[in-house]
Design a binder for these strands. Sequence first.
DNA 1: TTCCTATTTCTGGTATGATGGAAGTATGAG
DNA 2: CTCATACTTCCATCATACCAGAAATAGGAA
Lengths: 113, 113
Amino acid sequence: MEGPATDPVRYAAMFAALGTESRLRIVRLLLAAHPGGLIVSDIQTEMGIPASTLSHHLDKLRQQELVAVERKGTFLWYRANAVRLQELLDFLYAECCTRSSVVEPTALVQICK
Amino acid sequence: MEGPATDPVRYAAMFAALGTESRLRIVRLLLAAHPGGLIVSDIQTEMGIPASTLSHHLDKLRQQELVAVERKGTFLWYRANAVRLQELLDFLYAECCTRSSVVEPTALVQICK
DNA sequence: TTCCTATTTCTGGTATGATGGAAGTATGAG
DNA sequence: CTCATACTTCCATCATACCAGAAATAGGAA
């Protein structure tokens, strides 16, 4: 019954989850590896941080559903959650565009080729 | 000499600045009032929080340049910073679109009318 | 000047968050 | 079963963030 989550509390929590360099880098890694995803040890190698610290960050990203995880044998595969990222992008875009004319619609599309 | 700020540290800080309900609501208020902006006491009335608390939030948003302030006589007028918001939106979009194919380009444009 | 309003800064208390070593759990191999 | 690997949870520490009353500053009016 959650709905599309128009309430600012959830979006604030999502922004907060992206609000550290470590977690933002993790999301970037997962986006670069999308849709295949990455296993924790590979993320750890890339990040260069202790396993427990990384696990905490992954947990926070998972709480906000910015990433999803699936076990395959011994390994846990993390991947970026496209739906939530799109929601976040839509929210920010709608705020800047619908509520005001801060952002021009055409500006964004050019970025993606 | 700052440049367009492609580094994730700054974007993480910007996300963090939007990562509380209070500050996200403030930005929404300023976007709704764009480009005129609002004075502090009007924001306070809308938010229902103490002046000192509000001032701290505004300071944090200003540090990340998500809002700008200008004094006109006795009043301080705060307004949303279109440039920074656009940068943030572009960053998120570029990550989701260029690095992967998480987000379809067309999906966003429809939102704005 | 004095007074009033607007807003910030000071100060301190409390809570939340980040970090990481150590121990625990889960899965698969042999 | 034992063992090894992958990852998490437990636990503690430290830093940062949030909050808000009180005091200070800035500007304009009289």
